[in-house]
């Protein structure tokens, strides 16, 4: 599954996207994998996950082909 990074998470991940070498069943599983792989993300104020351009809770199931984005704390405006 391919995921996208933005803002500070793009720097922490070393690029704008990544092929995750497994298919997490839920957003929470993906979050756990991310925090293990990039421990510095634990220090952020918050990390949200968007699935198909909508904010998703940890319980949300993930399917192959979903558009998944890692959303660090927002600072627009």
């Amino acid at each position: 599954m391919k995921i996208m990074f933005f803002g500070i998470t793009k720097e922490l991940a070393g690029g704008p996207s990544l092929d995750v070498p497994l298919q997490p069943a839920t957003v929470g599983e993906l979050r756990g994998w991310l925090m293990e792989r990039y421990p510095a993300m634990k220090n952020l104020r918050a990390v949200m996950i968007a699935v198909n351009k909508t904010y998703a809770g940890d319980a949300q199931p993930l399917a192959e082909g979903d558009e998944v984005a890692v959303i660090p704390p927002l600072s627009g405006g």
């Binding site: 933005f6 720097e11 952020l44 968007a50 959303i71 704390p73 927002l74 600072s75 627009g76």
Partner: peptide, 28 residues
Amino acid sequence: AIDTLKETVPIWKREFFEDGAVWVAAHP
């Protein structure tokens, strides 16, 4: 509209100072 934009719209800003740069609000 402006208050909600700041809370929900996925946009990020990086602030550049003379001695470096930070992603605004990223850390507690």
